[in-house]
Design a protein around this nucleic acid. Structure first.
Length: 948
RNA sequence: GGGCGUAUAGCUCAGUGGUAGAGCACUUCGUUGACAUCGAAGGGGUCGGGAGUUCAACUCUCUCUACGCCCACCA
């Protein structure tokens, strides 16, 4: 059964004259999927497993996906063809922030906002959006030809994954590996949520460095009588929450001031000058203002200075507008201002600078202008490494909040060991160092997000019992798989006089009941995707899939998510499965624009893979990705190259048409046919070598080498030589050899189709069926098993044939002889062996080489061209006038090349050190090569002499 | 500040301890029924600079230069 359409002009031919990818791709994809061929029943076979990095439900296929998924599909199709129970797990990521943003944006367009709805209503709307508009990418992955197991498509928020996430959270909590802590987090004021360190992108931006006088209180002065200490900052607005000034303990200038106080000019707050190593005497004035609530360094300094996190002043609200600090010292006119200039309105930063300037506390920056005159500025211009949220796009604010943290340091240890011990092999190996470096310096992972879309944290807060009575602290935490679970735990905690109730809003406590309020936060999306390798296989249930397919064999991902995803899978996988998630981790690079720059929407240089598929076909795009993927390098986009692989597909198409027209069809055997003709034995040998090279390349994850191997075999060996050489056989009178050749050619074409299938699944499936009736589809066919060895004699004979024909051709071009001219040759120094070869190959020599006769008689006198191949000289008499000078020049060029090589080899062999110290094989080879080259030079010289 | 990577033909890139390869581009020729999305034949590189190890280095080591990326608390 073949869905191939047959609208060929020639009714005897199945294949159209032209190959049109668009005409076959959809058809074959639907065929495979409908027949369930992406996951054939193979419970008895060796499993092979890859999980696909779940794309965002909001996403659409970009060029990076095309690369990532092509590579995975090549591997999974290869393993499937090798007969394994190949499983490629697929699904989508709920992408908390991204998805919530998309839905909120849609609401904004309708003049609505998230907070117009209840949380439940909003989440319901997100689900609706997901059902209607989400997952466009899954259709696009199908267009690329990816053979993942759609029948078990997963979602990071489906029931099974929810279960897994819950259990992981609860177990980690019970083991003390998840905890709640109050500390500074990266706060995104646009999204109003905490984000993890990894989601912060530091960008160099132009900023200012302001210098201020901080007046010393109580009439204290420096030795020089100065009544202030100079501090400098890039963030003057944080002065509203300054709690100290730090100087280096050994800084002589300020030693006397340690312990003395500052009176902050705007807030009037008094605080101490403290000694701390953090202050760098070399930098600025050597004194640094300390804002523990709004700076990561200052937070640490503040702790060392004796402030508890709960005492640290906060002056910003969730949207980074100024709010009153706990001590009430922020002047009213600042309350509500944005942290800095926004929408053309000055913010706290500008206001602070202005006020201090007016009060005389600003120390101007002095610089020289073009004319050498001194000019004063408010601040020194400076490049500042500024943190931005990777989603929200605004400057991140270090903000003091309570959040949930994963003890990544503990989880990292076995994950580090797994790579060290080789339980996980990272390919290319150079990434190991990056992995170790990050893992060994890993910080607590902030996993709570102040969003509505995501896995809600299974933690409930209740009043703490103090002295047998419920306090109003709300700081007692219950973590459980369900409310029932939590009730049980709460019951055990609270004295029996208390009833326990759940409520979403804390109510005033009555004497006889306590409210448990669920944490409103959700988990970081990466928290759930970290469980992908086992959560998708059924965990926490002990399913058969889990048993068979965990650990996965391989993970392919871009290096850009090594920390986000790969490393966290390693940690969680080992923690919960006691085994690594995958045996190998392959990291590929980025696909860059043609000019080498990073593709980005803002630059407008994004290449749409679907456009390339439309233009050149999915097969061509896939082959491009494979051919360009060499380990450890980014890929530069190159349309011309994609076009080249489209041409390759066309070439194969036409070769198949040739076969079909000549009665060559589907092979009946898996093993190579028995063959007698050298050309057939030769091509079988080439298949054997190609298959070995291809398997090795794929095992080594050398996609480029794999692609090039099959490309060159198909085009250079099979099309350019084999098909040409068998033409005379197919049209010859000997029915026996013609039949043998048809068998062999059909078998070789089958091997090509199978070996090429992982790279170009569509055209190969089409050809597979077009070439004859098949018992099964190519996608589940068998990988080549030629059961044949390389035939050295056949190889040597065909190599000679190719050299001779090539020699004749280049001679003609160089002597300006029309290529179609038929010639005859006389052999000098030929032996019986050569005579036998000539006899066997006379048809090919005549048809392909245009040598009508090859005589072993001496050549007649007269003008001739001469070719030296493998120890014999072929003299080609020329009918017309020969350009003697051109022929001499040609022969001389060859002679010089041979002499040059002979000289080099001779020189090497003349060096006693070489003969003594080099490997014997190397010496032996040099001797043999020298003999060959000298003989060749001799023949060429003789040929030149003959010309007179 | 630390780490990693890359520098090979006009362009994009492979490559091996023993005198350099591919695709595209370029030149010349070609419509003998698979293919002009093609065929044939060519031109083109002191393998970033320097030093070292070695009989031998494009390949190993060091160093310099240029570019790229990642991580990091310089107010």
């Amino acid at each position: 059964m073949s869905p191939a359409k047959s609208n060929a002009k020639d009714p005897a031919m199945t294949l159209d004259k032209n190959f049109d990818p668009a005409a076959i791709e959809t058809r074959w994809y639907e065929h495979w999927e409908n027949k369930g061929l992406f996951r054939p029943e193979r419970d008895d076979r060796e499993p092979f497993t890859i999980v696909n990095p779940p794309p965002n439900v909001t996403g659409s296929l970009h060029i990076g996906h095309a690369l990532d998924n092509t590579l995975q599909d090549i591997i999974i199709r290869h393993e499937r063809l090798k007969g394994k129970d190949a499983l490629w797990v697929v699904g989508m990521d709920h992408a908390g922030i991204a998805t919530q943003m998309v839905v909120e944006r849609q609401m904004n367009e309708r003049q609505q906002k998230r907070t117009d709805f209840t949380r439940e209503q909003f989440v319901e709307k997100v689900w609706e959006w997901k059902e209607e508009s989400g997952g466009a990418i899954t259709k696009q992955l199908r267009r690329l030809g990816c053979s993942m197991d759609w029948s078990n498509e997963r979602f990071t928020m489906d029931e099974g994954m929810n279960e897994a996430v819950l259990k992981v959270f609860v177990d980690l909590y019970n083991d003390g590996l998840i905890y709640r802590d109050k500390r500074l987090v990266n706060w995104d004021p646009a999204l109003k949520t905490a984000i993890s360190d990894l989601e912060v992108e530091t960008v160099d931006t132009k900023g200012s460095f302001w210098h201020f006088k901080y007046p010393l209180a109580d009439g204290v002065t420096l030795d020089n009588g100065q009544d202030y200490i100079e501090v400098a900052t890039t963030r003057p607005e944080t002065m509203l929450a300054d709690m100290a000034v730090a100087v280096h303990p050994s800084d002589e200038r300020y030693k006397s001031l340690i312990g003395k106080e500052i009176e902050q000019p705007i807030t009037g707050r008094r605080f101490k000058i403290v000694a701390d190593e953090h202050a760098d005497p070399e930098l600025g004035s050597g004194a640094v203002k300390i804002t523990p609530g709004h700076d990561f360094n200052d937070f640490e300094v503040g702790k060392r200075a004796g402030f508890a996190a709960s005492e640290m002043l906060n002056m910003l609200d969730g949207e980074a507008n100024v709010c009153q600090t706990a001590d009430g010292l922020v002047p009213d006119e600042y309350i509500g201002l944005h942290r800095f200039r926004k929408d053309g309105v000055d913010g706290a930063r500008e206001r602070v600078v202005q006020q201090l300037k007016e009060q005389g506390f600003l120390i101007p920056h002095v610089s020289k202008n073009k004319d050498g005159e001194q000019v004063e500025h408010d601040a020194e211009p400076r490049t500042i490494a500024t943190p931005f949220g990777d989603r929200g796009g605004v400057v991140i604010e270090p903000w003091l909040t309570d959040q949930w943290y994963v003890d990544a340091e503990t989880l990292a240890q076995p994950a580090i060991k797994a790579v060290r011990d080789g339980d996980i092999e990272i390919v290319p190996k150079s990434w190991e160092k990056t992995y170790f470096n990050w893992m060994e310096n890993i910080q607590p992972w902030c996993v709570s997000r102040q969003l509505w879309w995501g896995h809600r944290i299974p933690a409930w807060f209740g009043p703490e019992i103090i002295d047998g009575e419920a306090s109003d602290s709300g700081s007692k935490i219950f973590v459980g798989m369900s409310e029932a679970d939590v009730i049980k735990k709460a019951r055990a905690y609270y004295p029996s006089k208390y009833e326990i109730a759940f409520g979403d809003t804390p109510e005033g406590l009555s004497a006889d009941f306590v409210n448990l309020v669920r944490d409103p936060d959700v988990l970081d999306t990466w928290f759930s995707s970290a469980l992908w390798p086992f959560g998708t296989l059924g965990w926490p249930e002990q399913t058969k899939d889990l048993e068979r397919h965990y650990p996965n064999d391989l993970l392919i991902s871009g290096f850009d998510i090594l920390f986000f995803w790969d490393a966290r899978m390693a940690m969680q996988g080992i923690q919960f499965m006691k085994e690594v998630p995958w045996k190998r981790l392959y990291l590929h690079g980025l696909v860059r624009a043609e000019d080498g720059s990073k593709m980005s929407k803002s630059k407008g240089n994004v290449v749409d893979p679907l456009g390339l598929i439309d233009q050149y076909g999915a097969d061509a795009l896939r082959f491009f990705m494979a051919a360009m993927e060499s380990q450890g390098r980014d890929i530069k986009m190159d349309d011309k190259r994609v076009e080249g692989y489209r041409n390759f597909a066309t070439k194969l198409w036409n070769a198949s048409r040739f076969c079909e027209a000549n009665g060559i069809g589907a092979s009946k055997t898996l093993a190579a046919p028995e063959a007698t003709l050298p050309v057939n034995r030769w091509i079988i040998s080439e298949v054997v070598e190609t298959q070995q090279a291809l398997d090795k390349a794929l095992t080594d994850l050398r996609f480029d080498a794999a692609a090039n191997t099959i490309y060159h075999f198909t085009w250079d060996r099979f099309c350019d030589w084999y098909l040409e050489l068998i033409k005379p056989v197919l049209q010859g009178e000997d029915a026996g050899t013609a039949d043998e050749t048809r068998m062999v050619a059909g078998w070789v074409l089958d091997q090509i189709i199978v070996m090429l299938h992982p790279f170009m699944p569509f055209i190969t499936e089409e050809l597979w069926h077009a070439m004859g009736d098949r018992k099964y589809d190519l996608i589940v066919a068998q990988w080549p098993a030629p059961k044949a060895a390389v035939d050295a004699d056949a190889k040597s004979e065909v190599d000679w044939l190719i050299k001779l024909i090539s020699g004749v051709r280049s001679t003609k071009v160089e002597l300006n002889i029309p290529p179609g001219t038929k010639m005859s040759a006389h052999v000098c120094d030929g032996d019986d062996h050569l005579q036998a070869k000539v006899t066997r190959q006379h048809a090919a020599l005549e048809r392909v080489g245009r040598l009508e006769t090859i005589s072993f008689d001496p050549a007649p006198d007269g003008p001739s061209a001469q070719i030296v191949v493998d120890g014999a000289t072929y003299v080609l008499p020329l009918a017309g006038a020969i350009d003697i000078d051109a022929e001499k020049a040609r022969l001389n060029k060859a002679l010089e090349a041979a002499q040059k090589e002979a000289k080099s080899l001779g020189g090497r062999l003349g060096n006693p050190n070489f003969v003594e110290k080099a490997k014997p094989e190397a010496v032996e080879k040099a001797r043999a090569d020298l003999a060959d080259k000298e003989a060749e030079a001799g023949r060429l010289q003789a040929a030149i002499d003959r010309l007179g």
